[in-house]
Design a protein around this nucleic acid. Structure first.
Lengths: 188, 188
DNA sequence: TTGACTCTGTACCATTCGGTACACTGCGCT
DNA sequence: AGCGCAGTGTACCGAATGGTACAGAGTCAA
């Protein structure tokens, strides 16, 4: 009876919300139907391989967002200091508006880890690698830049866990602010 | 026919292993039976409320371990510097020998979050709070100590996620070492 | 107007889920 | 010897799982 209420990219966004709220395994098909308002028909129309496909699509969407909003600016940065500032602002806003959940972390800790292992690996190594390169271009020695970048990403991810555990947005804000300061202080 | 192969605390340890390997929701009762070698009878004998009980018991075991090996030493510490060193060593060894997984983080990100929210909150706020107090006693101003402690725990947790994502124990070792250095450098 | 195509809801499938019931085993106690 | 009870395996339960089949509904081009 109804027609095209959602296109595939709307569906992906809605799914991301469900996965953030309930975790990947906690999001059963009936929960997904209920919370997205989509029936099984639509779901399997857009994601023919079912839940696995939905997971892939959601991770790809997040990866694409980071590629555009975080990774590319990092890649293109001339000035490491302002690149760090921009990354901090972007990332903070992203996670605050997404229930303080990184879906790659969810997948990394969940039961379907192996299915998405490659995507997870790429996301994190891109992030760490590109941040390290930006810091290196800013005049930090290669090994130091790599260490700093790894710690920065780790602290942000851990900050998200703590924010969730303590149910407090301020943990995200504080953590990101201190990561930003730590990186800028290291810059010559 | 057989008798008492495992007592309850062996069962808890075995369950913790399964949950680390497959996540909480990924560990179905049949997987649990298979991987622990215990039948449903034994499982429900030790954990009358079923899976929820198993989750509670496993978290309580981890909490008790940290209480004894990490929190109490932090509480009793006279010398902040050596307290930091000890914490780093203990925590590194713990997570390296446990598939680099913090079960509290798993529960914090999983679908059963609400069931264990209180235990998760207590674990993380204990850890951060006691570390902050130890740093404070070491001569760091209260707010700085709180920030440092929060970042330290966050970085370790994030380091675990990265170690898992990149499938590399060295990430744990490196992250913990740098957290240790960061804390010691802040001490007067 | 017709037909092809995209999207959707519903009914259904086999399998697995978490959980229960219960009979049995063997130890420790008296 | 006999009882009680902690621990165990097995068969079973209804409900929920992920997935399929399929017939409609609406849109568009010809």
């Amino acid at each position: 009876m109804p027609r095209t209420l959602l296109d595939r990219s709307d569906a992906v966004l809605a799914l991301a919300g469900v996965f953030r709220r309930r975790g990947f395994e906690g999001a059963s098909l009936s929960v997904i139907q209920q919370e997205t308002g989509m029936g099984r028909g639509s779901l399997y129309h857009f994601f023919p391989e079912g839940k696995t496909d939905m997971g892939r699509a959601v991770l790809a969407e997040v990866q694409a967002w980071f590629e555009e909003q975080v990774f590319e600016p990092l890649r293109a940065s001339e000035d490491a200091d302002s690149a760090v500032v921009k990354m901090a602002r972007t990332v903070e806003e992203y996670f605050l508006s997404r229930q303080r959940v990184c879906l790659f972390a969810v997948m990394a800790l969940g039961g379907e880890r192996e299915t998405y292992a490659e995507a997870v690996r790429i996301y994190f190594s891109d992030w760490v690698g590109l941040l390290a390169q930006a810091l290196g271009r800013g005049g930090i020695a290669e090994q130091d830049a790599a260490d700093l970048a790894m710690d920065a990403v780790a602290t942000i991810q851990g900050g998200l866990i703590l924010a969730r555990a303590l149910d407090d947005d301020a943990v995200v804000v504080g953590t990101v602010a201190r990561v930003e300061r730590r990186l800028r202080d290291a810059l010559p």
